[in-house]
Simulated assay, not measured.
Amino acid sequence: MTLSLLAQTPSRAPEPEPAHEAFLKLDKVERAFVYRRGTLTRPAKSFNAVDGVSLSLRKGETMAVVGESGCGKSTLGRLAAGLMRPTGGYVDLDGISFGELSADGWRDSRTQVQVIFQDAAGSLDPRLPVETQVREPLDLHNAGTREERRRRTEEMLMAVKLGRHLWKAVPGELSGGQQQRVVIARALILEPGLLICDEPVSALDVSIQAQIISLLADMRDRLDLTMIFISHDLAVVRQIADRVAVMYLGQIVEEGPVERLFSAPMHPYTKALLAAVPVPDPAVKRSKQLLMGDPPSPHAPPAGCRFHTRCPIATERCGTDMPEMRSFGSVHVACHHAEERS
């Protein structure tokens, strides 16, 4: 890791890399959780919060993961960050396989991947000054001299537009937006290659959300970051993502470039999500996409397509056969009726 200055020339548009040179690759990743322990008379029961997910990101690319609460977005983010070990499949970050890392190897990998969580206040130590908390990753990894660490900390605090008068403050003296700026500075001070953002703006006011999204986009361009941006807010996703992956009950049902997915969604679930996004112009007429019922329990997902119990175009085949992910140009869709919408 180098202590390079942040005032480098931004390079937002990396040259496209061949598919086999993905910076981050998730291949058929699964993560099971036990919800009932086994006894002498009954077996244990578990469910897959993430079930067979495959994704790949190029260096400098931003992938948004969207879906309803409980669909597995945050679990997928933790798997991509190496905070959880997959129970199936593998996660590879620039040649590092998280499932095979030793304890020392996992610690070293933290310089390459960082996470920003939704609860900024809960991510910070309430007793330590802002400046100390931002510098702490450099101290833990013994990066550079003491003077270099101090200078690097000041650069990062200025880069996230946090005034000098706040550097000695404790988190309780800051607003929610200021706390999130501290968390961003601390996550990026090690210059990671991968940044996982798990609902980073959902707890903030709309005006502050726009500032934080703009800051994240700016830092991504300065540091050539690869990002996974987890959110349920499609309006926010459109501002920052290059590609979008839509999750439902632990599986990816559609994935593709953000503008292509927003303009011509192919999966009925994606279409319903987009139809629910508020439009500020009351004169705009939109077709309603009402979904029937509630999402099934992840403990007992339905057979076949997991969305068929709520899908307006489901057929008998949808209730028996699991759809495979198929490619239609730049878009990948898991739906038996994708041809009809291509």
Rank of each mutant, 00 (worst) to 15 (best):
Arg151Trp: 09
Ala210Tyr: 07
Thr132Gly: 03
His267Lys: 09
Arg152Phe: 12
Pro282Tyr: 03
Asp119Tyr: 13
Ala314Phe: 02
Glu147Pro: 00
Gln180Arg: 13
Pro312Gln: 00
Ala334Gln: 05
Thr62Met: 08
Pro16Cys: 01
Glu154Ala: 13
Glu324His: 06
Ala32Val: 10
Val182Cys: 04
Pro268Glu: 13
Lys28Ile: 09
Leu261Ala: 08
Met325Val: 15
Glu154Val: 15
Glu21Arg: 12
Glu155Thr: 07
Gln180Gly: 06
Ala241Arg: 10
Pro298Trp: 06
Leu188Asp: 04
Glu17Tyr: 00
Gly293Cys: 10
Gln251Pro: 08
Ala334Phe: 02
Glu254Lys: 11
Leu57Trp: 00
Pro268Ser: 11
Ala217Ser: 15
Ser69Ile: 08
Gly95Trp: 02
Ile116Glu: 09
Arg222Ser: 05
Glu254Pro: 09
His332Tyr: 10
Gly52Gln: 02
Pro171His: 06
Thr315Pro: 03
Pro278Cys: 09
Gly52Phe: 09
Gly144Arg: 08
Ser207Lys: 06
Glu339Arg: 13
Leu5Glu: 13
Leu166Met: 08
His267Pro: 10
Ala19Pro: 03
Ile213Ser: 00
Pro302Thr: 12
Ala64Leu: 03
Gly52Cys: 08
Arg78Tyr: 14
Arg85Leu: 05
Leu57Gly: 07
Leu166His: 04
Ala276Phe: 15
Leu174Asn: 07
Gly95Arg: 03
Leu188Arg: 10
Val333Ile: 09
Asp139His: 12
Leu215Ala: 12
Val66Glu: 06
Leu162Asp: 11
Val253Ser: 05
Glu173Asp: 11
Arg42Ile: 10
Asp125Phe: 07
Gly52Pro: 09
Ile196Phe: 05
Leu174Gly: 06
Glu154Ile: 09
Glu61Tyr: 00
Pro302Cys: 07
Glu61Arg: 03
Asp281Gln: 03
Arg36Ala: 14
Ala103Arg: 15
Gln251Met: 05
Gly88Tyr: 11
Leu204Asn: 04
Thr9Asn: 14
Asp321Trp: 00
Lys73Gly: 00
Val236Asp: 09
Gly77Trp: 06
Glu61Lys: 01
Cys197Trp: 12
Glu173Ala: 07
Leu24Trp: 01
Arg78Gln: 12
Arg181Phe: 02
Ser207Val: 06
Glu254Cys: 09
Pro302His: 08
Gly163Ile: 03
Val134Cys: 15
Arg317Leu: 11
Cys197Leu: 11
Arg222Ala: 09
Gln114Thr: 04
Ile189Arg: 06
Leu273Met: 15
Gln180Glu: 05
Gly329Arg: 00
Leu215Tyr: 15
Leu83Pro: 00
Asp92Gly: 05
Arg58Leu: 02
Ser4Phe: 06
Leu249Val: 07
